[in-house]
Simulated scan of single mutants.
Amino acid sequence: MSDGLNDARAMRIAEIMTDFRNLQHYLSQLRTSPTAEEYYLEGYSLLRQCASEAQTTLETPFAASTSAPGGDAECEKQQLRAIITDAAARRFQCQRAYLRAHAGLRWMNTRNSILRGQKPNASHVNALQSTDSTLRMELICITDVHVENTLRTQDGAEGKWLEEDPSLANIQQIIMAR
Rank of each mutant, 00 (worst) to 15 (best):
S133P: 00
Q29T: 12
V125S: 07
L80W: 05
C94W: 02
L151I: 15
P61W: 10
L168Y: 06
L23T: 00
R90W: 06
L139F: 11
C94H: 04
W161P: 04
E53L: 10
S133T: 07
A157M: 14
E59H: 11
I140D: 14
L128E: 06
I142T: 03
S33A: 14
Q79A: 15
Y40T: 10
Q49I: 08
H146D: 04
K160V: 04
N149T: 13
V147H: 08
S130D: 10
E53D: 12
A73F: 01
L162C: 13
Q49A: 13
P34Y: 05
D144R: 09
R178C: 02
S33C: 03
Y26V: 06
Q154T: 11
R90K: 15
Q29H: 10
L162G: 05
N6I: 07
D3E: 13
N149Y: 12
P166S: 03
L5Y: 09
F92R: 08
G104P: 08
A169S: 13
R116S: 10
C50P: 00
E53W: 12
H124I: 00
N109D: 04
R178T: 09
D3L: 09
Q95E: 14
Q29A: 15
F62P: 00
N121I: 01
E158G: 03
I175K: 02
T110K: 12
S67I: 10
T32R: 03
I114P: 05
R91D: 10
L27H: 04
I171Y: 05
